[in-house]
């Protein structure tokens, strides 16, 4: 049996840079060109300095699980259940909603170190996370 295919993300003028980077296998987060503020989800303007010059800048792709949830019901054919959903705090600061892959659901916990990887949709990859082995 093949893995179900996730729905493609919705592209908007504000978020396109994020998904375009992901489709190329890069995790890039919006950053203010003027004051350097990282922000996610991306937006139309920097709320700190009101600059509109904003760029999607590659991040390290490392972080840790801030919170998590095993989603059991209702179920949709685009996913395998339980869905292991996580909020990850990136080392650069922003928090991002995603999935933890390649992990036993019982092993998910707050504080797990994670590393970005990518998963396919019908229209390009999206960033997901795997447990990062600390050396």
């Amino acid at each position: 049996m093949t893995e179900p295919l996730r729905p493609a993300p919705l592209r908007t003028e504000e978020n396109d840079g994020f998904w375009s980077a992901a489709a190329e296998g890069r995790l890039a987060v919006q950053r203010c060109d003027a004051c350097g503020r990282w922000q996610h989800p991306p937006r139309a303007m920097c709320p700190a300095c009101h600059a509109t010059a904003l760029s999607f800048v590659d991040v390290a792709g490392t972080g840790e699980v801030y919170s998590w949830s095993l989603l059991h019901h209702p179920q949709h054919p685009s996913f395998s259940y339980p869905v292991v959903a996580v909020l990850v705090t990136l080392d650069e600061g922003p928090r991002i909603l995603s999935n933890l892959v390649g992990v036993e659901p019982a092993e998910v916990r707050v504080g797990l170190p994670v590393q970005v990887t990518f998963a396919p949709t019908a229209e390009g990859d999206v960033p997901v996370f795997a447990v990062r082995e600390l050396s």
């Binding site: 993300p9 919170s67 949830s69 949709h76 869905v83 959903a85 909603l97």
Partner: peptide, 26 residues
């Protein structure tokens, strides 16, 4: 922020609100 949730199977009000709940329990 639904466009940030749907590609990850976070599809319902209960799932959207579960993250603050888990962290609160923790």
């Amino acid at each position: 922020a639904m466009q940030w949730a749907t590609p990850f199977g976070v599809l319902t009000p209960a799932s959207w609100m579960s993250f603050e709940s888990t962290r609160y329990m923790h």
